[in-house]
Design a binder for these strands. Structure first.
Lengths: 359, 359
DNA sequence: CTGTTAGCGCCTTCAT
DNA sequence: ATGAAGGCGCTAACAG
């Protein structure tokens, strides 16, 4: 037979002090005599009081000490992708240091097929700030919902949102560096494997019409860089997730479409390391050598302990990016300052790129 | 110049109804005329009202609609481990269906070296239920803290907690099946690579004293199964994380200690697939063939798209396990019922086990 | 179906 | 250094 949970009032009574004094004993936000404090804490322990009720505190203070982290459409995808994971890790540690909790928010509601509607949590959960890890797109309903609620925003990768803090990296410059490196090696026939374009995911070759539909910022920036570089791009293959198997499937499709070694692309620019690794595996399975027959480059600079060799890639400071988002949150909370940060990237030449085969 | 956020009272006034009626328009927890509802919602839109303030709702209703998910010591580790990720995925989807938010809670506070103290979030964040994904250990301070707060618990893997819902798998049976399979093939000399033992992580050979210190349930159950099976166990190597590189390092240590092919162990029982995969890579690098020279088995049954061949392993239903935890949460919330679930596992024979080399 | 009433538990003035 | 009072925004219970 358990009685109702004790409240601060009960503790105060038991300790023979006023409620406001008891409050001070827990919050340490005012002067209090050591003896009084001990008396209160003892009474609390006696009664089995577990500390101030968060709901009461939140209502009174107007703060939740919770940050809503909006991760793509499916949690699984974010967790499976080592890139997301590292960003999340930097973010959570920066937030943890400020004793801010991380509330995972799916973002979009998943319906039977396709996904429509904003997740109810986004509409109703208590949070001081929301972080859109993978950017906001045009007319993003999640942004609208958060706006209506008056919740400030931090956006990763994507510059379309006014009034929101932003953390981005130099996607365009990174891919340009990759392309230049390959061009310097003598490559002339390129193909690129891209990240997903938008929420309605699909896998396959990209035509002009489809190219107009790129909504996700990293995808767009990285693709634009290849187009802007002026190299001869024989094709663009869009994947529906940044996983090894998608990279392999894309590479097989590419080999299928270019069966003749004389006209086959010699340089593959993949928009992520996992896609690149998958492409390399598919090439090896097809009996081709990397980089002697085909060069492959990735993007991200993640660890692939199982990968034989080392990917040529653009290293982005993932954990730091997450930390920067965390700092942007803290800044927003501290004084409402909206910060914009851009992180540098760095070309890392590995063993998967080399001169094209002589003809 | 922005005025203060409107409250439900403002909306009610603007719509010309009482506050409680306005509340019904949002919560749908009572009868309300369609016309009234529209009137209220229109007034809300007019005023830019973003919906009921969560803090008010929480205080009044006593519910947060938030579940605290306590993941090991470092978020990174949980995210990096595909096993955790799949469990988390099943859990979050089961909780999402009930519109419950997931609050990530680190569990233990990380100090300069080592980790001591319960994370402040565990003490102070609002949550209806807490889930300890990777079990509770003896005298777990996190459990004590949650107990004091009166927060009900769901524990994955670990049966030491009274009064808490439990979801577990048949670790012992799974490893026994592996060992039997290897014994049937003719193996006589075994070695096992284990998951971390406890919070004070270390890497290296395990002696009798260390063996007493196993605190994490899956590690203990899986190790006990090998010991109970009665096979000749030449050594136990403890890792400090379930990652490919740890498996490789462990395997190198094993080869180092047993340089003579005649007395070398022929069967490696790894407590996770990633450890097993790492072991296989290290063996191949050492010029040994799997399974002709050495057989390797794992545990978990995860996808390893980059792995050449298929691991012999014990498949556990990870996503279902997560879902089961989610259901346990919902049960707890619905009527306080404490459920206990045990999930079955299944031996899957792949290409990494075979008869030992003839002598 | 709608309105009235009465707090939920806490923290922040402000006074002592 | 401590106490008294008020109210944060909402919803449950009941009355009409």
């Amino acid at each position: 037979m358990s009685r109702a949970r004790p409240t601060l009032t009960d503790v105060a009574h038991a300790a023979g002090v006023s409620v406001s004094t008891a409050s001070l004993a827990f919050s340490a936000s005012g002067p209090i005599a050591e003896a009084t404090r001990t008396k209160v804490l003892d009474a609390a322990a006696e009664l089995g009081y577990g500390g101030p009720n968060p709901a009461g505190r939140q209502l009174r203070s107007g703060r939740y000490d919770i940050v809503g982290v909006v991760i793509g459409d499916k949690l699984k995808r974010s967790f499976r992708d080592p890139v997301s994971v590292q960003v999340l890790d930097g973010l959570t540690s920066a937030l943890g240091e400020a004793d801010l909790g991380v509330l995972l928010v799916p973002g979009v509601e998943s319906g039977i097929d396709g996904e429509v509607g904003v997740d109810p949590l986004l509409m109703s959960a208590g949070m001081d700030v929301a972080v859109l890890i993978w950017g906001a797109h045009v007319d993003d309903p999640r942004v609208d919902a958060l706006r209506r609620r008056g919740i400030p925003l931090v956006v990763g990768e994507g510059n379309e949102v006014d009034d929101a803090a932003l953390v981005e990296i130099d996607d365009h410059g990174g891919v340009l560096a990759i392309v230049d490196h390959l061009r310097d090696l003598g490559h002339e026939r390129f193909v690129t494997i891209t990240l997903p374009f938008r929420m309605g995911r699909r896998e396959g070759w990209v035509d002009d019409a489809r190219r107009e539909l790129v909504d996700w910022t990293p995808t767009r920036h990285r693709l634009d860089a290849v187009l802007d570089s002026g190299v001869d791009l024989l094709g663009t293959y869009e994947t529906e997730a940044s996983l090894v198997e998608n990279g392999s499937a894309a590479m097989r499709a590419i080999l299928d479409r270019f069966p003749d070694p004389a006209t086959r692309p010699t340089a593959v620019v993949a928009q992520s390391d996992l896609l690149a690794a998958g492409a390399v595996l598919a090439l090896r399975e097809a009996g081709l050598r990397v980089p002697e027959d085909v060069s492959v480059a990735g993007f991200d600079g993640i660890d692939l302990p199982w990968f034989a060799g080392e990917l040529t890639t653009v290293v982005q400071p993932l954990e730091e990016k997450g930390r920067a988002m965390g700092l942007a949150v803290r800044q927003l909370l501290a004084d409402g300052t909206v910060t914009r940060t851009s992180m540098p990237v760095r070309l890392r030449i590995g063993t998967t790129t080399g001169p094209p085969p002589a003809r």
